[in-house]
């Protein structure tokens, strides 16, 4: 469904912005947990094939927002959504949409590495198997190898494919989760504080990887570290108390933000 739609949307955008066209359009997003509102009227466009980082103090709604993009909030009983999120011209909250297919197009990497208690190979092959792809054994082998190479993990663990995924180190586990997400050929990869449970060296390795991945994938990353946002992203959005305060090129947000709150936050005076 995605490829056909690509052509006919937002031609204007492509024209005006020249280099990047925007892939995700969020309009008037409101999210509630029971009666408590977590997001207020968020409008945000996310560009194709670049890294967008979401920053803000904890509890500001950035994780809630990223979980809206693949409808992971549906899992939470008390959570309700209104507004619209259009990806490739398709409203993902349209009742006609199948969340299962939607999530197959959008990969997600979580805060804590969560490899399944299966072998490394089975972890990566899990998604493709679900979606009935690469039923041939050698195709599957190739796919797993390809995904692990893209996640920069192949050289380290090519001899350990049958070991349980949980036996790897924390950084390797997180890259395995990235490989697992890549294996279903998503267009978008969502990362929810992917480095918060890792040491600095593993973090650096993941950041490098994000840089490589942005050539092929649209990446949205939530981070609590402003340095990380500055290092890996092209665009940055600042959230505060459930409001999107400011969004813009990363350089601009960190050097000369328009909003006082943003400035206070990025200069470390607040949050």
């Amino acid at each position: 469904m995605v490829t056909e739609m690509d052509q006919n949307i937002n031609i204007d955008d492509v024209d005006t912005k020249m280099e990047k066209k925007s892939l995700i359009h969020c309009t008037d997003v409101n999210v509630f947990y029971d009666d408590k509102q977590a997001l207020f009227n968020v409008d945000l466009n996310i560009n194709e094939k670049e890294v967008t980082s979401l920053i803000g103090p904890s509890g500001c709604g950035k994780s809630t927002f990223i979980r809206c993009l693949n409808r992971m909030n549906d899992v939470i009983e008390t959570c309700s959504f209104n507004g619209s999120i259009i990806i490739n011209g398709q409203d993902i909250y349209d009742p006609e949409i199948d969340v299962v297919e939607l999530r197959a197009k959008i990969g997600m990497v979580f805060q804590k590495p969560n490899p399944f208690p299966k072998s490394v190979f089975d972890n990566v092959a899990y998604g493709p198997k679900l979606h009935g792809r690469f039923l041939n054994k050698s195709d599957m082998n190739n796919k797993v190898e390809d995904s692990l190479i893209k996640a920069g993990l192949w050289d380290e663990i090519k001899d350990r494919l049958n070991e349980p995924g949980t036996a790897l180190s924390g950084g390797q586990q997180q890259r395995l989760c990235i490989a697992r997400a890549i294996a279903v050929d998503p267009e978008i990869i969502l990362m929810d504080e992917p480095c918060s449970a890792l040491d600095p060296i593993a973090t650096a390795r993941i950041e490098e990887l994000i840089d490589e991945l942005k050539v092929n994938y649209t990446i949205v990353i939530v981070t609590h570290s402003m340095q990380q946002a500055a290092r890996v992203s092209q665009r940055t959005a600042f959230f505060h108390l459930g409001n999107l305060i400011e969004v813009g090129d990363t350089g601009k947000i960190f050097r000369s933000p328009d909003n006082e709150q943003t400035e206070a936050y990025v200069t470390g005076r607040y949050g």
Binding site: D98, V100, E101, L130, H131, G132
Partner: peptide
């Protein structure tokens, strides 16, 4: 198997 048939089967 086509994608559609598979989706149906999974559902």
């Amino acid at each position: 198997m086509t994608d559609k048939a598979l989706t149906l089967k999974r559902k």
